[in-house]
Design a binder for these strands. Structure first.
Length: 679
DNA sequence: CCGCCCACGC
DNA sequence: GACGTACGTGGGCGGA
């Protein structure tokens, strides 16, 4: 791996964790944490220390008293009342024995303990393994990097074995930590977080909650080790090793036990293939993309920031001038009061449920003819957003080890099967406005020998709704290569393709998107700013011309009502608990999910398959170029110029053929020195 | 610290 | 009469 390690960067006193904390708390990714509660902790601290087969101190606790009905609920199992055998493996001889034991296994679970939550910045503190429920091993790693590397070298045959299945909870994190130490995990993976994501994507997938729900066992909380987050929280490396043994070994143990529970559940829910052929293999692809990172032109952003700052100030002063008073323009509450109480721009101004005036973009735009203050406010908002969220934030996330930004793709957040991205979020980089597009120019190729290449699926969700519904007219339009929104307009308005006006196409486009989301006539009328009656007529014509779509919608809803779930082309399920609710609002939400989830989810399935195949092809052809970003229907590559044609061929082939369909799948490939040019 | 409002993407 | 377009991430405000 072409990564230069910088010793200084490795000794981070304060890993940048503020941003990650909420995410990891939600995932209960148990490496850094929450809050100390007292000290009801009992570990192998000598008083029950014994020698184990590795000649190390053993932390064991036999169940002395079964909990009585009167103090602890019977199902509230925890380390205090549950037999376990968690061992410290702290010597070279011990490790040797453990490694030889691990190498005999067909599957192992493991976990890493680290100094923080961002795999790209942390140091390793220890490793834990489990090969049998109730048993676990903890191997502390020294603070000295060279010594840790030496220990990891001992474990390399285990991690890099093609034959041992590696079980983990959010194993991509551990994979990345190991990659930063030049260990390349290999072999089949089983991620308990992803298994549960396939079993029930709408619920939570953190280890603690999974353990409680499926094992009836409450794991040791991270806060009992490192304390509450905020000032005074310890780092895992500062926790005495005897405390970490149980915590870490229990993690590996619980993970193994969860895998044992989830494997049959995956089969029951028809999700085993998705796990084995899509989600688990994709972990390798995402880890490679993340560690590769993306180059950012910090100088361009710095210059743009200064310019924005100037323009923001101008807009702000203009607003204060026109309003006749100074206030905090960044405060929607204050702005609402100025616009509607002081300037009285709209006597019927709507308020939010918290009693503030609404000042969102659509509200402001509707007021644009009342006062030219509105445009200044919109400009201010837009520039402020660009500056704070992108222009100023991105350079702060450049990793000093690599000079690149390394996003994290979350594979278990979006209930439809999509990925999400954070730190930074590379899936919401601006594109719609000129000011926003400037940000895209700052995403650049690795060096002058490289270019960025962007490949987009064209109208993938509409193609998939045509595919799934088998709607003949829509399939025809795609098969004949007619622009789908123009074709839709011609149908809806009963005119020829050549007669469609740009306004008619715009309306048709809005309906096409509305259909995907289960939009109503009211929603369409709002969106297009047309009378509700007109919107209803357009929708009626739409269903007349595309009867297959109408059938798809009612069939899908009936399926959901009967089965309690809907599914994608690949069988990815989303359970809709509220589909039969008596509450109209709640049920309506579930019904829209029933329509949308198979479409959005099938598109997610397709690009995931493409990514796995592209990744494999690029490795097999020993190409140096890298896939670096995924934005739902787009893949971005950092391509060495000499490989351009070969890479294009692989991308095009694999994206088009990821899933066999009747509807033609088309992609667009662009290239350039930056992301804006490539797109 | 956290919920709300707002705005960026697909 | 209320409701009213899917899925996300994140910055800043302001009340607790």
């Amino acid at each position: 791996m072409p990564v230069e390690f910088n010793e200084q960067a490795l000794i981070l006193e304060e890993p940048s964790k503020e941003l990650l904390e909420p995410l990891f708390a939600e995932l209960e990714f148990r490496t850094i944490g929450k809050r100390v509660f007292g000290d009801s902790f009992s570990v192998a601290d000598g008083k029950n220390g014994q020698q184990d087969l590795f000649g190390n101190t053993v932390s064991t606790k036999e169940v002395e008293n079964q909990p009585s009905l009167f103090d602890t609920p019977i199902d509230a199992k925890n380390i205090e009342n549950t037999p376990h055998d968690y061992q410290l493996v702290g010597t070279s001889e011990g490790r040797k024995e453990l490694i030889s034991l691990l190498l005999q296994q067909s599957r192992i679970s493991f976990d890493t303990e680290t100094t923080g939550t961002d795999a790209n910045f942390v140091d390793l503190v220890g490793l834990s393994f489990s090969i049998e429920a109730g048993k676990g091993y903890y191997i502390p790693t020294p603070e000295n990097r060279e010594e840790t590397l030496a220990i990891l070298e001992e474990f390399r045959p285990v991690f890099e074995s093609e034959h041992i299945v590696k079980i983990g909870q959010n194993i991509k994190y551990d994979m990345l930590v190991l990659k930063w130490y030049s260990i390349q995990l290999k072999g089949e993976l089983f991620d308990t977080m992803l298994a549960h994501y396939l079993i029930d994507p709408d619920t939570r997938h953190g280890m603690d909650v999974l353990s409680e729900n499926y094992l009836g066992y409450t794991p040791i909380s991270i806060t009992s080790l490192i304390g509450a987050k905020g000032k005074g929280q310890l780092n895992m490396k500062d926790v005495p090793v005897e405390k970490v043994i149980d915590y870490a070994a229990e993690d590996a143990d619980v993970t193994l036990q969860l895998a044992n529970v989830f494997e049959p559940m995956l089969l029951e829910r028809n999700a085993q293939k998705l796990a084995k052929e899509i989600e688990n293999p994709l972990i390798y692809v995402l880890a490679d993309m993340e560690i590769e990172g993306v180059r950012i032109d910090a100088d361009t952003l710095a210059a743009y920031s200064a310019q924005l700052q100037e323009d923001i100030l101008k807009a702000e002063l203009s607003v204060y001038d026109k309003a006749g008073l100074k206030f905090n323009l960044a405060s929607p509450k204050q702005l609402g009061e100025v616009l509607f109480d002081h300037l009285k721009l709209d006597p019927k101004a709507k308020k939010t449920k918290t009693g503030q005036y609404q000042t969102g973009e659509d509200v402001l735009t509707a007021l644009a003819n009342k006062s030219d203050i509105v445009q200044d406010i919109l400009d201010f908002r837009q520039m402020q957003k660009l500056k704070s969220t992108y222009v100023d934030a991105l350079p702060l996330l450049v990793n000093p080890r690599t000079g690149r930004v390394h996003t994290s793709y979350n594979q278990a957040v979006a209930a439809t099967g999509r990925l999400s991205s954070n730190n930074p979020n590379l899936q919401n980089i601006p594109i719609k406005t000129d000011r926003g597009r400037e940000v895209r120019k700052a995403f650049i190729a690795r060096d002058s020998d490289h270019i960025l290449l962007s490949a987009d699926y064209s109208q993938i969700e509409l193609r998939l709704i045509a595919e799934i519904s088998k709607e003949a007219n829509m399939l025809d339009a795609f098969l004949n290569g007619i622009d789908i929104h123009t074709a839709t307009a011609a149908k809806v308005y009963g005119i020829g393709i050549d007669e469609v006006t740009s306004n008619q196409r715009r309306n048709a486009k809005a309906v096409n998107f509305g259909i995907i989301y289960g939009q109503s006539a009211f929603g369409l009328s709002q969106n297009l700013n047309i009378p509700r009656k007109e919107a209803a007529e357009i929708i009626e014509q739409y269903f007349n011309q595309y009867p297959g779509i109408k059938n798809y919608m009612s069939d899908t809803m009936n399926f959901a009502r009967e089965n309690g779930y809907v599914e994608t082309i690949m069988g990815r399920r989303r359970y809709l608990r509220d589909i039969n609710s008596a509450n109209m609002t709640v049920r309506g939400y579930a019904e829209r999910n029933a329509i949308n989830a198979p479409i959005q989810g099938s598109a997610a399935d397709m690009i995931k398959v493409a990514m796995i195949n592209i990744h494999r092809d690029m490795k097999e052809h020993k190409l140096q170029s890298k896939m670096t970003m995924q934005v739902h229907d787009e893949l971005v590559f950092d391509v060495i110029k000499s490989e351009k044609e070969a890479v294009k061929e692989i991308i095009s082939n694999r994206m088009k053929t990821a899933i066999k369909t009747e509807v033609p799948i088309e992609i667009e490939i662009g290239e350039g020195v930056n992301w804006l040019e490539a797109h």
